[in-house]
Write a protein that binds this DNA or RNA. Structure first.
Lengths: 146, 146
DNA sequence: TATTGTTATACTCTATAACTATA
DNA sequence: TATAGTTATAGAGTATAACAATA
């Protein structure tokens, strides 16, 4: 029941629909992360570093959807816990280059089976084709100029 | 460049792709909300109330993807600012029923043109058909059992 | 006993500005 | 002057547990 019919229903509001879909997907992932004492943000940092190799901190911020001050804080504890390592770039000494360590990578591989099970469950219900289509559309949306 | 090819690229990771797409969409919306001193969460509450009419607080929490303690705090300030009103349900006195006020609705209608412009820009770049398809898929994903 | 909502608490992220070091 | 990153700070949300009132 819509009291203001000229406003789109929340289910057809892109930001709200994206959030609700994300909550559905994140729910079991959060359970998994909680069991290994990792925040969502740290998990995104590990995924980005595993994918991109050695990168500077601004790249992590952009790819993991975090602000640079948050990255500074997060990497400080991740370095202390041995999940990532940092080195000053010798060419441009303003830059700090970051890599994932074996210990950091192990966190991802140790939980790979659980991750695949979560994705598999969604795929089983939606179908692989629709899931691929959704990921294609999300990639396209992500690239839109705002 | 993937260092662990058996882990999906972040662009094909549903939670990360949903987040990145959401950040793209939210960026201009955040600018709009900031100009009217409204948080994303309060904006979602207004949208949900405008759509559903009078509802109890648990429903708001579920629909707006918020925890009940957050809803308690958020509604307290929104009530003080005259955007929503609350009344004890006479049938079940545990329930608090919440409605959007005219002032709250005005916030949405006053910013309708700006909202439509943001959506219109995305639609112009992606095409209406793809956008509809995306919203259909997001609704379907949202309903998956996890 | 279960449910609705509130309160309390600890933690984390967000957002911005000011700052340092380097280019 | 501009850029990469850090620090400081205020504000807000997240998550959980404990609680009160009601069913």
């Amino acid at each position: 029941m819509t009291t203001q019919s000229h406003i789109k229903s929340t289910a057809r509001s892109l930001p709200i629909a994206l959030l609700r879909a994300r909550e559905t997907v994140m729910s079991p992932i959060r359970d998994m992360l909680q069991s290994i004492h990792l925040t969502e943000q740290k998990w995104r940092v590990l995924r980005v570093l595993d994918e991109l190799g050695e990168v500077e901190q601004s790249t992590i911020a952009h790819e993991a959807c975090l602000l640079l001050p948050s990255v500074t804080r997060i990497l400080r504890t991740m370095e202390a816990e041995g999940q990532i390592s940092r080195r000053r770039d010798s060419d441009d000494k303003r830059r700090t280059m970051v890599t994932i360590t074996n210990a950091g990578r192990s966190i991802l591989t140790d939980n790979l089976a659980a991750s695949l099970a979560i994705t598999g469950n969604i795929e089983a219900q939606m179908g692989q084709e629709k899931l691929d289509q959704l990921l294609d559309l999300l990639e396209e949306l992500q690239a839109v100029r705002t």
